[in-house]
Simulated scan of single mutants.
Amino acid sequence: MVVQVENPAGDIAPRVRSVRVLALARWLLAVAVLVVLMIAVGGITRLTESGLSITEWKPVTGALPPLSEAQWQAEFEGYKRIGEYRQINGPAGMTLSDYKFIYFWEWSHRLLGRLIGLAFALPLAWYWIRGAIPKGYKPRLLALLALGGLQGVFGWYMVRSGLSEKVTDVSHFWLSIHLITALFTLAGLVWTALDLIQLDRNPAARPARLTGFAALTGLIVFVQLLLGAWVAGLNAGLASDTWPLMQGRLFPEVDWSKGFGWALTHDPYLLHFLHRWWAWVAVAALLVLSRKVRALGVRQASVAIHSAFGTQILLGIATVMTGVALWLAVLHQLVGALLVAATAWGAHAVGRRP
């Protein structure tokens, strides 16, 4: 097909060139799949308490794991200096073999982040040099690249928040920033890929706009994701193993002694309660969004939204009732990422312009 693109030198005046816009869209969707995988590995890292196993940030040399017994001992000694080891794993008798297990998951999570960076940056440079990026898309692609970089920085700040001798876990605030940045990046990748698919079908197509209702739905889903991240960071999933009641009652006992603000952001029982019931507010908004999408004839997006939130609800209940079984909790986080992608798809469908 033929579309207008900016030339490699960045001149404002567009010129006509034959480009494979669909290839750009497929590249972004492939990166989105890697981001979903990374979110799942991040969930395993969190649930196995592996996130603090690597106490230094080495963006380049850290891609290689320890290769000798001396290197393993050096890494283990660094881990022994933090509160998680001194207060929890040390007294429990952690061995070097135990340490290697948690190191593997944190190292895998960081390695996957590096691979995603390369999978985005190298093709971006290639398409840029060849002048294959449609007009108006360069700033958006650079913004997605910057989000990926911020994701790594936020991940390190999250880890650093748990390296003190006085704490045994990372800050749930930094954990939520780290996770939601990844999910926002995922939504951006999906949205941009869909814009490019529309451009491939029609050279006159304009980028979709974010409608008011889609923005409201996104905000409701954002609150649910934030609550979920705080629940994970505070291990609040363990506050109850029954559903729908908690502690034999609808509303659990909450520690209000430190004020409403503290309870809203720190009390595991309140956060668990809010996360399980705000989910139904999100479901209601997503139902309306999916009906709007279906009315526009984009049935696949409607089915994706229904499937994602239905599966997510069932996984959430199962995770609670099994006392946060590892693989159920990981699947819950994985489907949460797929729900974000499906929501972005639906929001894009209702925002397409003729």
Rank of each mutant, 00 (worst) to 15 (best):
V2E: 15
V3Q: 03
Q4Y: 15
V5H: 00
P8Q: 07
P8D: 10
G10I: 09
G10R: 12
A13I: 14
P14E: 05
V19L: 04
R20D: 15
L22S: 14
L24E: 01
A25K: 01
W27P: 02
A30H: 07
V33K: 05
V35G: 02
M38A: 14
A40N: 09
I44H: 05
I44R: 00
T55I: 06
T55K: 00
W57E: 07
W57F: 14
V60H: 00
T61F: 09
G62I: 09
E69V: 11
E75Y: 13
Y79A: 00
R81F: 07
Y85V: 01
Q87W: 12
S97G: 13
K100E: 10
W105H: 02
W107V: 02
R110V: 12
R114S: 13
L118T: 11
A121S: 14
L122P: 02
L122A: 15
A125G: 08
Y127N: 03
I129C: 13
I133F: 10
I133S: 06
P139S: 10
R140K: 13
L144K: 07
L147I: 14
L147E: 11
Q151S: 15
Q151P: 01
Q151A: 12
G152F: 04
V153D: 05
G155M: 02
W156T: 09
Y157I: 08
K166S: 15
T168A: 07
H172S: 05
S176H: 01
H178M: 05
L179K: 00
T181Q: 08
L183Q: 13
F184R: 01
T185E: 11
A187E: 01
G188N: 08
L189W: 03
V190F: 03
A193S: 07
L194Y: 06
I197S: 01
D200W: 06
N202Q: 03
P203I: 06
A205P: 05
R206F: 05
R209T: 15
L210W: 13
L210Q: 12
F213W: 09
L216M: 11
L216K: 01
T217G: 11
G218M: 05
I220H: 00
V221C: 08
V221F: 04
L225T: 13
A229Q: 00
A236K: 04
A239D: 09
A239H: 05
P244N: 08
P244S: 12
P244M: 07
L245D: 13
M246W: 04
Q247M: 13
P252E: 11
S257Y: 05
S257G: 07
K258A: 14
K258E: 11
K258Y: 12
F260M: 12
G261S: 14
G261D: 11
H272R: 02
H275C: 09
W277C: 04
W278T: 11
A279V: 12
V283D: 08
A285P: 00
L289G: 02
V298K: 07
R299F: 15
V303L: 15
V303G: 01
V303R: 12
A304R: 00
A308Q: 04
F309K: 00
F309I: 10
T311D: 03
L314P: 00
M321A: 07
T322E: 12
T322H: 08
V324E: 04
L326K: 09
L326W: 10
W327C: 03
W327Y: 14
L331V: 06
Q333C: 06
Q333Y: 10
A337W: 04
V340E: 02
V340G: 01
T343I: 14
A347P: 01
H348P: 03
H348E: 10
